[in-house]
């Protein structure tokens, strides 16, 4: 097998040069998808026969919750790549994704609380799903705090990678929490093997919002990563040229 494509990722300069175009593509896709999804979710989708219009919160709650978990999985994969192949860009990705993942977890928890009040009658309950999501938020905070607490970059990268990999055990707990402890949070509405338990007019805008959130995540992740690469390579000729060329 030809591994050239993999070795390219070892070059920060190659990444910086390529990612500019990716960033633009993801940014445009995110704007289009989120704008269309927002209008569809707020104004066009029919209201729920039981929950009325409060159900519209699903269109940010579910995408944010998806992303909060996908982002943590990405942290763990970046951690493995960083530990096994000593790839510096993996640590850049890990450090840059952590605050974005934390903000997505925050959105999921917050919209869940606001949705819970009219639906369950409570902002917060110590339900298994809610508690495991709160633990996910603290895992993100842990990764961020750990990287700032260790001044040696290589040691910090290793410590954060290990924490990310160990913390991944929380993801199946989040996923199956609604089945193992059947308390208040409802089970998944969407399963890969079954037809959605929702009419198309309701799940189509949700699908668009989910795709929009993923594109948004890619956009802001690349923005952060490109800056971090510049900072770490600040003594090289190409970064100097880049700094002098940009406003």
């Amino acid at each position: 097998m030809n591994w050239t494509w993999f070795h390219k990722w070892g070059s920060p300069k190659w990444f910086y040069e390529m990612s500019g175009a990716w960033l633009k593509g993801f940014a445009i896709a995110a704007c289009v998808l989120l704008a269309a999804g927002l209008v569809w979710a707020l104004a066009i989708a029919p209201e729920d026969y039981q929950q009325g219009n409060s159900f519209r919160i699903i269109y940010i709650h579910v995408p944010a919750a998806f992303l909060a978990q996908s982002c943590y999985l990405m942290l763990a994969i970046a951690g493995i790549i960083g530990l096994v192949w000593k790839m510096k860009l993996a640590d850049v990705a890990l450090q840059c994704a952590a605050p974005i993942g934390a903000s997505m977890t925050f959105i999921a928890l917050l919209t869940g609380a606001v949705w819970g009040k009219p639906t369950w009658g409570a902002w917060w309950v110590w339900d298994a799903r809610l508690t495991s999501m709160l633990i996910l938020l603290f895992l993100y905070f842990g990764v961020i705090a750990l990287s700032q607490a260790i001044s040696n970059r290589d040691s910090a990268a290793k410590a954060c990678a290990v924490l990310s990999i160990v913390g991944v055990i929380n993801l199946p707990i989040i996923k199956y929490s609604v089945e193992w402890w059947n308390t208040l949070h409802q089970p998944a509405t969407f399963k890969i093997t079954e037809k959605p338990a929702m009419p198309m007019e309701m799940w189509l805008p949700l699908l668009i919002m989910v795709l929009g959130f993923y594109c948004f995540f890619a956009t802001v992740l690349l923005m952060r990563m490109r800056l971090e690469v510049l900072k770490r390579e600040s003594r090289t000729r190409w970064v100097r040229n880049e700094v002098e060329a940009s406003r």
């Binding site: 209201e47 009325g52 219009n53 940010i60 944010a64 959105i107 917050l110 009040k117 948004f216």
Partner: peptide, 29 residues
């Protein structure tokens, strides 16, 4: 549309704060 069938405070606060967090994610970098 703005009344959201009586659920206005919930729907608009959830969307408003989420949008603010997304915008912060763009503004900070």
């Amino acid at each position: 549309f703005f009344a959201m069938g009586g659920h206005a405070p919930y729907v608009w606060s959830a969307y408003g704060i989420s949008l603010l967090v997304l915008l912060l994610n763009v503004a900070v970098p």
